[in-house]
Simulated assay, not measured.
Amino acid sequence: MSYSSDDENRPGECDWCHDDRGICDRFIVLDEDQRFSIKLEETFDVHTLIPCFARRYVLERMGFEDHESFETKKIILSTHHGVDFQVKLYNAQSVTHFGCKNWEALCKMYGFDEGMLVTMDLGDPTIEQERPTIFVLVDTPPILPPSYFHSSKNVRKMVDRTYYTEGSELTYQEKNHLVGFCTDLENYNVYNRTPQHYGQYVPLVHVLNYGNYHGDTLIIPNDCVPHLMYTRGSLHVLNIHPGRPTNLNCPYRVSKRSGGMIIKEWKKCMDSRKELLGSNIQRRAKIGDRMIAILHNGESGSTSFYAILP
Protein backbone atom coordinates (compact mmCIF):
# COMPACT_ATOMS: atom_id res chain seq x y z
CA MET A 1 0.00 0.00 0.00
CA SER A 2 1.41 3.37 -1.01
CA TYR A 3 0.94 6.52 1.08
CA SER A 4 1.92 10.13 0.63
CA SER A 5 1.97 12.93 3.21
CA ASP A 6 3.37 16.43 3.50
CA ASP A 7 3.49 16.19 7.28
CA GLU A 8 5.33 13.33 8.96
CA ASN A 9 3.18 13.72 12.07
CA ARG A 10 -0.09 13.29 10.19
CA PRO A 11 -1.49 10.12 8.61
CA GLY A 12 -0.72 9.88 4.92
CA GLU A 13 -3.28 9.80 2.17
CA CYS A 14 -3.80 6.49 0.43
CA ASP A 15 -2.68 6.78 -3.19
CA TRP A 16 -5.52 4.51 -4.30
CA CYS A 17 -8.67 5.49 -2.41
CA HIS A 18 -7.39 8.86 -1.06
CA ASP A 19 -8.52 8.04 2.48
CA ASP A 20 -6.37 10.12 4.84
CA ARG A 21 -7.11 8.29 8.10
CA GLY A 22 -3.97 6.14 7.87
CA ILE A 23 -5.82 2.83 8.07
CA CYS A 24 -5.48 1.38 4.58
CA ASP A 25 -1.96 0.03 5.26
CA ARG A 26 -3.13 -1.91 8.31
CA PHE A 27 -5.02 -5.16 8.51
CA ILE A 28 -8.45 -3.85 9.40
CA VAL A 29 -11.48 -6.06 9.92
CA LEU A 30 -14.95 -4.66 9.58
CA ASP A 31 -16.88 -3.75 12.70
CA GLU A 32 -18.81 -6.91 13.59
CA ASP A 33 -17.68 -8.21 10.19
CA GLN A 34 -20.14 -5.98 8.37
CA ARG A 35 -19.68 -2.22 8.99
CA PHE A 36 -17.15 0.32 7.73
CA SER A 37 -17.05 4.08 7.20
CA ILE A 38 -16.28 6.26 4.21
CA LYS A 39 -14.83 9.74 4.56
CA LEU A 40 -16.42 12.00 1.96
CA GLU A 41 -13.98 13.92 -0.20
CA GLU A 42 -14.53 17.10 -2.22
CA THR A 43 -16.18 15.42 -5.22
CA PHE A 44 -18.03 12.79 -3.18
CA ASP A 45 -21.41 13.39 -4.82
CA VAL A 46 -20.17 12.26 -8.24
CA HIS A 47 -17.30 9.92 -7.31
CA THR A 48 -16.88 8.20 -3.93
CA LEU A 49 -14.19 5.55 -3.50
CA ILE A 50 -14.56 2.54 -1.24
CA PRO A 51 -11.66 2.55 1.29
CA CYS A 52 -9.04 -0.04 0.40
CA PHE A 53 -9.35 -1.86 3.72
CA ALA A 54 -13.08 -2.47 3.06
CA ARG A 55 -12.90 -3.04 -0.67
CA ARG A 56 -12.50 -6.82 -0.73
CA TYR A 57 -15.41 -7.28 1.70
CA VAL A 58 -17.66 -5.08 -0.43
CA LEU A 59 -16.74 -6.89 -3.65
CA GLU A 60 -17.29 -10.33 -2.10
CA ARG A 61 -20.65 -9.46 -0.54
CA MET A 62 -21.89 -7.67 -3.66
CA GLY A 63 -21.06 -10.63 -5.89
CA PHE A 64 -18.08 -9.40 -7.91
CA GLU A 65 -16.27 -12.47 -9.25
CA ASP A 66 -12.95 -10.92 -10.26
CA HIS A 67 -11.72 -8.16 -7.96
CA GLU A 68 -9.17 -6.86 -10.47
CA SER A 69 -11.29 -6.57 -13.59
CA PHE A 70 -13.55 -3.81 -14.83
CA GLU A 71 -17.12 -4.56 -13.83
CA THR A 72 -20.23 -2.59 -12.90
CA LYS A 73 -23.10 -3.84 -10.76
CA LYS A 74 -26.38 -2.27 -9.74
CA ILE A 75 -26.87 -2.53 -6.00
CA ILE A 76 -29.34 -1.14 -3.48
CA LEU A 77 -28.40 1.49 -0.92
CA SER A 78 -31.01 1.39 1.82
CA THR A 79 -31.63 3.64 4.85
CA HIS A 80 -33.77 3.07 7.93
CA HIS A 81 -36.08 5.86 6.76
CA GLY A 82 -37.49 3.47 4.18
CA VAL A 83 -35.56 5.01 1.29
CA ASP A 84 -33.93 2.73 -1.29
CA PHE A 85 -31.71 3.92 -4.13
CA GLN A 86 -30.46 1.66 -6.91
CA VAL A 87 -26.92 2.84 -7.60
CA LYS A 88 -24.03 1.73 -9.77
CA LEU A 89 -20.95 0.30 -8.08
CA TYR A 90 -17.94 0.42 -10.39
CA ASN A 91 -14.89 -1.78 -10.00
CA ALA A 92 -11.52 -1.39 -11.71
CA GLN A 93 -8.16 -3.06 -11.22
CA SER A 94 -7.27 -1.24 -8.01
CA VAL A 95 -10.28 0.84 -6.95
CA THR A 96 -14.03 0.54 -6.42
CA HIS A 97 -16.40 3.49 -6.32
CA PHE A 98 -19.96 4.82 -6.38
CA GLY A 99 -20.82 7.36 -9.04
CA CYS A 100 -24.17 7.84 -10.76
CA LYS A 101 -27.25 10.07 -10.66
CA ASN A 102 -28.88 8.03 -7.90
CA TRP A 103 -25.76 8.19 -5.72
CA GLU A 104 -25.76 11.96 -6.22
CA ALA A 105 -29.46 12.04 -5.29
CA LEU A 106 -28.86 10.07 -2.07
CA CYS A 107 -26.10 12.51 -1.07
CA LYS A 108 -28.38 15.47 -1.73
CA MET A 109 -31.35 13.89 0.02
CA TYR A 110 -29.40 13.61 3.28
CA GLY A 111 -27.35 16.77 2.90
CA PHE A 112 -23.97 15.01 2.93
CA ASP A 113 -20.97 17.35 3.18
CA GLU A 114 -17.27 17.09 2.48
CA GLY A 115 -15.38 15.58 5.43
CA MET A 116 -18.36 13.63 6.80
CA LEU A 117 -17.95 10.01 7.85
CA VAL A 118 -20.72 7.82 6.45
CA THR A 119 -21.13 4.37 7.97
CA MET A 120 -22.16 1.52 5.70
CA ASP A 121 -23.39 -1.91 6.73
CA LEU A 122 -22.99 -4.92 4.45
CA GLY A 123 -25.46 -6.96 6.48
CA ASP A 124 -25.06 -10.23 8.33
CA PRO A 125 -22.57 -12.32 6.28
CA THR A 126 -24.33 -15.53 7.33
CA ILE A 127 -27.62 -14.44 5.74
CA GLU A 128 -27.88 -14.51 1.96
CA GLN A 129 -29.42 -11.38 0.49
CA GLU A 130 -32.14 -11.56 -2.16
CA ARG A 131 -30.51 -8.62 -3.93
CA PRO A 132 -27.14 -6.95 -3.31
CA THR A 133 -27.81 -4.34 -0.62
CA ILE A 134 -25.69 -2.01 1.48
CA PHE A 135 -27.37 -0.26 4.40
CA VAL A 136 -26.40 3.40 4.83
CA LEU A 137 -26.54 4.23 8.54
CA VAL A 138 -27.50 7.89 8.88
CA ASP A 139 -28.61 9.35 12.21
CA THR A 140 -30.19 12.49 10.80
CA PRO A 141 -33.45 12.50 8.82
CA PRO A 142 -33.44 13.40 5.13
CA ILE A 143 -33.68 17.05 4.14
CA LEU A 144 -35.54 16.33 0.90
CA PRO A 145 -38.44 13.92 0.19
CA PRO A 146 -38.40 11.27 -2.56
CA SER A 147 -41.01 13.32 -4.48
CA TYR A 148 -38.33 15.96 -5.08
CA PHE A 149 -36.30 13.52 -7.18
CA HIS A 150 -39.35 12.50 -9.22
CA SER A 151 -40.25 16.11 -10.08
CA SER A 152 -39.13 18.12 -13.10
CA LYS A 153 -35.79 19.91 -13.25
CA ASN A 154 -37.61 23.25 -13.12
CA VAL A 155 -39.47 22.26 -9.93
CA ARG A 156 -36.26 21.06 -8.28
CA LYS A 157 -34.64 24.41 -9.03
CA MET A 158 -37.57 26.22 -7.42
CA VAL A 159 -37.38 24.04 -4.30
CA ASP A 160 -33.61 24.63 -4.07
CA ARG A 161 -34.11 28.42 -4.22
CA THR A 162 -36.84 28.50 -1.56
CA TYR A 163 -36.50 31.31 0.98
CA TYR A 164 -37.54 30.51 4.56
CA THR A 165 -38.32 33.22 7.07
CA GLU A 166 -37.57 32.60 10.75
CA GLY A 167 -39.56 29.71 12.18
CA SER A 168 -40.94 28.58 8.81
CA GLU A 169 -38.55 25.70 8.10
CA LEU A 170 -40.15 22.54 6.72
CA THR A 171 -39.37 18.94 7.60
CA TYR A 172 -38.54 16.66 4.71
CA GLN A 173 -42.08 15.22 4.85
CA GLU A 174 -43.58 18.72 4.77
CA LYS A 175 -41.46 19.55 1.73
CA ASN A 176 -43.77 17.21 -0.19
CA HIS A 177 -46.26 20.11 0.00
CA LEU A 178 -43.64 22.50 -1.38
CA VAL A 179 -42.82 20.12 -4.25
CA GLY A 180 -46.53 19.70 -4.97
CA PHE A 181 -47.16 23.45 -4.91
CA CYS A 182 -44.29 24.16 -7.33
CA THR A 183 -45.49 21.34 -9.59
CA ASP A 184 -49.02 22.75 -9.61
CA LEU A 185 -47.66 26.18 -10.51
CA GLU A 186 -45.64 24.70 -13.36
CA ASN A 187 -48.72 22.84 -14.65
CA TYR A 188 -50.88 25.96 -14.26
CA ASN A 189 -48.45 28.00 -16.34
CA VAL A 190 -48.33 25.35 -19.06
CA TYR A 191 -52.11 24.92 -19.19
CA ASN A 192 -52.82 28.67 -19.21
CA ARG A 193 -49.83 29.50 -21.42
CA THR A 194 -48.68 32.08 -18.90
CA PRO A 195 -46.24 34.58 -20.46
CA GLN A 196 -42.63 34.16 -19.39
CA HIS A 197 -41.59 35.30 -15.94
CA TYR A 198 -38.92 37.99 -15.69
CA GLY A 199 -36.10 36.30 -13.79
CA GLN A 200 -36.34 33.21 -11.57
CA TYR A 201 -39.07 32.06 -9.22
CA VAL A 202 -38.04 32.23 -5.56
CA PRO A 203 -40.64 30.42 -3.42
CA LEU A 204 -41.28 31.89 0.01
CA VAL A 205 -42.23 29.89 3.09
CA HIS A 206 -43.58 32.45 5.51
CA VAL A 207 -45.04 32.31 9.02
CA LEU A 208 -47.91 34.75 9.28
CA ASN A 209 -47.27 36.84 12.38
CA TYR A 210 -47.74 40.39 13.61
CA GLY A 211 -44.26 41.27 12.36
CA ASN A 212 -45.09 40.63 8.69
CA TYR A 213 -48.89 40.94 8.77
CA HIS A 214 -50.42 43.86 10.59
CA GLY A 215 -53.49 45.93 9.95
CA ASP A 216 -54.40 44.99 6.41
CA THR A 217 -50.84 44.66 5.07
CA LEU A 218 -48.56 41.69 4.30
CA ILE A 219 -44.80 42.15 3.88
CA ILE A 220 -42.81 39.95 1.45
CA PRO A 221 -38.98 39.88 1.89
CA ASN A 222 -36.95 41.49 -0.89
CA ASP A 223 -35.22 38.15 -1.68
CA CYS A 224 -38.52 36.92 -3.12
CA VAL A 225 -39.49 40.06 -5.05
CA PRO A 226 -38.93 39.58 -8.82
CA HIS A 227 -36.72 41.85 -10.86
CA LEU A 228 -38.25 44.67 -12.92
CA MET A 229 -41.26 45.05 -10.62
CA TYR A 230 -42.97 48.41 -10.79
CA THR A 231 -42.58 50.23 -7.49
CA ARG A 232 -46.37 50.49 -7.25
CA GLY A 233 -49.16 48.57 -8.89
CA SER A 234 -51.89 45.98 -8.60
CA LEU A 235 -51.17 42.36 -7.73
CA HIS A 236 -53.33 39.39 -8.68
CA VAL A 237 -53.45 37.07 -5.67
CA LEU A 238 -54.23 33.55 -6.81
CA ASN A 239 -54.72 30.40 -4.75
CA ILE A 240 -54.42 27.61 -7.34
CA HIS A 241 -54.18 24.58 -5.06
CA PRO A 242 -56.22 22.74 -4.14
CA GLY A 243 -59.73 23.17 -5.48
CA ARG A 244 -61.13 25.96 -7.57
CA PRO A 245 -58.76 28.94 -7.97
CA THR A 246 -59.48 32.06 -5.96
CA ASN A 247 -58.38 35.21 -7.76
CA LEU A 248 -58.22 38.48 -5.81
CA ASN A 249 -56.54 41.82 -6.47
CA CYS A 250 -54.45 43.79 -4.01
CA PRO A 251 -52.52 47.04 -4.39
CA TYR A 252 -48.82 46.87 -3.57
CA ARG A 253 -45.69 48.96 -3.35
CA VAL A 254 -42.00 48.06 -3.19
CA SER A 255 -40.12 49.61 -0.28
CA LYS A 256 -37.26 51.86 -1.37
CA ARG A 257 -35.40 51.13 1.86
CA SER A 258 -35.68 47.34 2.21
CA GLY A 259 -36.69 46.28 -1.30
CA GLY A 260 -39.48 44.20 0.20
CA MET A 261 -43.02 44.19 -1.16
CA ILE A 262 -45.84 45.65 0.91
CA ILE A 263 -49.17 44.14 -0.14
CA LYS A 264 -52.25 46.04 1.02
CA GLU A 265 -55.80 44.73 1.53
CA TRP A 266 -54.43 41.30 2.42
CA LYS A 267 -57.25 40.69 4.90
CA LYS A 268 -59.57 39.58 2.10
CA CYS A 269 -57.01 36.89 1.24
CA MET A 270 -56.90 35.83 4.89
CA ASP A 271 -60.69 35.61 4.95
CA SER A 272 -60.91 33.50 1.79
CA ARG A 273 -61.84 29.95 2.82
CA LYS A 274 -59.60 27.41 1.10
CA GLU A 275 -58.47 23.85 1.62
CA LEU A 276 -55.12 23.50 3.35
CA LEU A 277 -52.38 21.87 1.30
CA GLY A 278 -52.62 18.10 1.57
CA SER A 279 -55.88 18.29 3.53
CA ASN A 280 -59.63 18.36 2.96
CA ILE A 281 -60.07 20.93 5.73
CA GLN A 282 -61.37 24.29 4.52
CA ARG A 283 -60.83 27.37 6.65
CA ARG A 284 -59.56 30.92 6.67
CA ALA A 285 -55.89 31.69 7.18
CA LYS A 286 -54.88 32.86 10.64
CA ILE A 287 -51.89 34.22 12.52
CA GLY A 288 -49.37 31.43 13.08
CA ASP A 289 -50.11 29.69 9.78
CA ARG A 290 -47.29 28.94 7.38
CA MET A 291 -47.82 30.13 3.84
CA ILE A 292 -46.10 29.20 0.58
CA ALA A 293 -46.02 32.01 -1.97
CA ILE A 294 -44.37 32.65 -5.33
CA LEU A 295 -44.39 36.05 -7.01
CA HIS A 296 -44.69 36.12 -10.80
CA ASN A 297 -43.85 39.18 -12.87
CA GLY A 298 -44.18 39.06 -16.64
CA GLU A 299 -46.01 40.42 -19.66
CA SER A 300 -49.35 39.38 -18.17
CA GLY A 301 -48.71 41.48 -15.07
CA SER A 302 -47.82 40.63 -11.49
CA THR A 303 -49.31 37.67 -9.63
CA SER A 304 -48.82 36.15 -6.20
CA PHE A 305 -49.54 32.42 -6.13
CA TYR A 306 -50.06 31.20 -2.59
CA ALA A 307 -51.40 28.40 -0.40
CA ILE A 308 -51.64 27.71 3.33
CA LEU A 309 -49.79 24.76 4.87
CA PRO A 310 -51.59 22.45 7.32
Rank of each mutant, 00 (worst) to 15 (best):
N9F: 13
N9A: 10
R10F: 10
C14S: 04
F27Q: 12
V29T: 10
D31P: 00
D31Q: 09
E32T: 01
D33H: 04
R35N: 05
L40M: 08
D45M: 02
L49Q: 04
Y57I: 11
L59R: 00
D66R: 02
F70I: 10
T72G: 00
K73N: 03
I76C: 12
S78A: 11
H81E: 14
H81Y: 15
G82N: 12
G82P: 12
D84L: 03
F85I: 03
F85S: 10
Q86M: 13
V87S: 01
V87R: 03
K88S: 06
L89H: 04
T96D: 07
F98Y: 08
C100I: 05
N102S: 14
A105I: 07
E114D: 05
T119H: 04
L122F: 05
G123C: 02
T126L: 14
T126Y: 13
I127P: 06
Q129H: 07
T133I: 11
D139Y: 05
T140F: 13
P142Y: 05
I143F: 04
P146Q: 10
S152V: 02
K157L: 13
R161D: 00
Y163R: 07
Y163L: 05
Y164T: 00
S168F: 05
N176F: 00
H177C: 10
L178R: 06
L178A: 04
C182K: 01
C182P: 02
Y188P: 09
N189L: 04
V190D: 15
T194L: 13
V202Y: 09
L208E: 09
N212W: 14
N212V: 07
Y213H: 08
H214W: 14
G215I: 09
P221W: 05
D223T: 07
P226M: 03
M229R: 01
Y230R: 13
G233P: 14
L235F: 14
N239S: 15
I240M: 10
H241Y: 11
R244L: 12
Y252D: 10
S258A: 08
G260N: 11
I263Y: 12
K264R: 14
W266N: 06
K268L: 08
C269V: 15
M270R: 10
S272H: 11
S279I: 00
S279D: 02
R284C: 14
R284Y: 04
K286Y: 08
I287D: 13
G288C: 13
R290C: 07
S300I: 14
G301E: 12
T303F: 08
S304A: 15
A307L: 05
L309K: 00
L309S: 00
